[in-house]
Design a protein around this nucleic acid. Structure first.
Length: 568
RNA sequence: UGGGGUGUAGCCAAGUGGUAAGGCACGGGACUUUGACUCCCGCAUUCCCAGGUUCGAAUCCUGGCACCCCAGCCA
């Protein structure tokens, strides 16, 4: 699929314009904070940053871990992020950095600001600083420390670094404007004291730079030309520029903001995702229902589909919520081309072919892909008794139902045409068995007389099939905007995972290797779970359903014989 | 109520003074050994609203309205 049309958006237009006016380099960076797992929202940013760099021969994109807060970050997250990004197909070659790689340079720059009288050590406590910051509509008050002599500021800063002071006792602040309507400019904190080990620098530091102080300067160190971030940093741009100007460094990187990704029926805030994991509402960060890369990978989403999705949604400055259906479309498109076909019966109903000899067994041949012969063919065992999907038979067919029913002829895919002559029920009235005759002239599934049958059923041989567990995933929440809900938990979809413990698959699928994916005909795309699937005992995750106009039609009607959860 | 942003179809999104691209979704049809895929057709007389400028406005001007972000020693 990966479409021909190159992405175009306002950021790329800016880059183009800069090139047109003589800029030689295009340097970007993807700067995640290693304090959690990457989710699809991050991919939008990664795709933008890595994508733009890849569009120019001399373009570069750094993978830079924004690790300025040792209280929240860990090596584990660094590793998981690298792995997830590699899986997605992004590469950074030698350009893997950390904000912490620049701590020493950053400190030099801070000293420079202090000497210029543009930064000072404030010994007010956190509460005092907060109280004197003012509000949205009232200016702040200047700290008494603001008048401190340059030499004393320098001395204090050195001693902060040396570890002479306890956490919270003082900070380094930029001297800007306590009355600015932009709160970010009211003497923002540059360094705080944290006697904590850092995932990258160990115990070398006990003062750590704040994001605003570190980020722009790191961009400068790396020669970043276009520093792309999300909309909530818009107000920070003035500060970003102020630091660079105060430092008088050149050339200066420029910050541009774009809207972050939102997806309906899920949440993309790290805080909320953590809550779901910690409270056990999902099995972990790699739960197939999670919008994390690990979740999507385990679910079976192809990385190319995720990239294509990011290309399609575009990049703008408008807050937006993209429909899950858009992502699913990309997943289906990718899988339709890439997935070999197979048959799986989830809710088995026995079908007996009365005119087929009891002791006969034979093998039928089926293509593994309807359009692509390169997928080869496979053999399907067949015998007098087979399993079909319970939903494919109706004793009293509803209007529009063209599958099996008394007197109806349908095709058993790649096998024969069969006609229902009878069915048996148990005491509860539940259909237990369907009896058919088959037409021996229709081997392979087509009639020599050219007669058409509308229905085609998937099936497995009763004698030779394999058991499998199938997990049917659906959207995590029942409402489009769960984050807006007063009680997130109450709005979780209780049917976001339904387990079918005793599904039946073609015998050859018993050994499906973890991660292998298939289209189960007429049902959806599935992949052998990488964790729970074992040889001889496969577990299949439903990646996404097939489009199903029949189900949609039934759902639209008031007579919901088998009701499905929203979005099923 | 200070500052910064954003309003084009159900959801994304082009468009930058010359008469509303495209995708998803949806509806209809064709094809079909998957009710899939593919293909065709349809889907905004109107661009948040109201005035104004202009031969001509989604685009320019004025005034409103709605929504988002900002008061961490988080990023």
């Amino acid at each position: 699929m990966s479409d021909d049309a190159p992405a175009r958006d306002f950021v790329r237009d800016i880059v183009e314009a800069d090139r047109a006016s003589g800029a030689l380099e295009v340097v970007t960076r993807f700067p995640p904070e290693p304090n959690g797992y990457l989710h699809i929202g991050h991919v939008k940013s990664a795709a933008l940053n890595f994508g733009i760099a890849a569009e120019y021969p001399e373009g570069r994109c750094y993978l830079r871990f924004d690790d300025t807060n040792p209280t929240r970050e860990s090596e584990e997250y660094v590793e998981s992020m690298k792995e997830d990004l590699r899986w997605l197909g992004f590469s950074w070659e030698g350009r893997l950095t950390h904000a912490s790689d620049y701590f020493e340079d950053l400190f030099e720059l801070a000293l420079r600001l202090v000497r210029k009288g543009k930064a000072y050590v404030d010994d007010q406590g956190p509460e005092e600083i907060r109280a004197s910051r003012g509000t949205l509509i009232e200016p702040g008050r200047e700290s008494p420390s603001r008048q401190r002599a340059t030499e004393e500021n320098e001395d204090l800063l050195l001693r902060m670094r040396a570890g002479e002071f306890p956490e919270g006792s003082m900070v380094l602040r930029a001297k800007i404007d306590m009355a600015s309507p932009n709160l970010n400019l009211r003497d923002p904190v540059m360094y705080r004291i944290l006697h904590r080990p850092h995932q990258n620098t160990g115990r070398r530091w006990c003062i750590y730079p704040m994001y605003d102080w570190a980020h722009g300067q790191c961009d400068y160190f790396e020669g970043v030309t276009h520093s792309l971030c999300t909309l909530e940093f818009e107000d920070h741009r003035a500060l970003y520029d102020w630091f660079l100007a105060a430092l008088e460094v050149e050339p200066r990187p420029r910050q541009y903001e774009f809207a972050r990704l939102n997806l309906d029926y899920t949440v993309l805030s790290k805080r909320t995702l953590i809550r779901l994991v910690d409270a056990g509402h999902v099995d972990g960060w790699d739960d197939p229902r999670m919008p994390t890369l690990r979740g999507m990978r385990r679910r079976g989403y192809p990385p190319a589909a995720i990239r294509e999705f990011c290309r399609r949604i575009g990049v703008t400055r408008k807050d937006s919520v993209v429909e899950m259906g858009s992502l699913e479309h990309c997943v289906r498109a990718e899988l339709d081309a890439a997935a070999p076909r197979a048959m799986c019966v989830m809710d088995p109903l026995k079908l007996v072919i009365v005119n087929y000899p009891e002791d006969r067994e034979e093998t039928l041949s089926a293509p593994n892909h309807p359009r692509n012969p390169e997928f080869g063919r496979r053999e399907l065992p067949f015998s007098r008794e087979i399993w079909i999907e319970r939903a494919d038979f109706m004793a009293e067919p509803a209007p529009g139902f063209f599958r099996l029913a008394p007197g109806r002829e349908v095709r058993l895919r790649f096998a024969w045409l069969v006609t229902c002559i009878d069915y048996l029920c148990d005491d509860a009235g539940e259909v237990r068995e369907v009896r058919c005759t088959y037409d021996p002239d229709t081997r392979g599934g087509s009639a020599p007389d050219g007669r058409k049958v509308k229905g085609a059923l998937h099936w497995v041989c009763a004698k030779r099939s394999a058991a499998a567990e199938v997990r049917l995933f659906d959207r995590l929440f029942t409402v489009a905007d769960p984050a807006a809900s007063e009680d997130l938990i109450s709005v979780l979809n209780p049917e976001s995972r339904r387990v079918v413990p005793n599904a039946l698959v073609e015998a050859n699928l018993a050994e499906a290797s973890p991660g292998a994916f298939y289209q189960f005909e007429r049902q959806g795309y599935f992949c052998a779970d990488a964790v729970d699937s074992a040889p001889g005992l496969p577990v299949f995750n439903r990646i996404v359903t097939l489009r199903d106009t029949w189900a949609r039609r039934r759902q639209a009607r008031p007579e919901p014989a088998r009701s499905r959860p929203p979005g099923a």
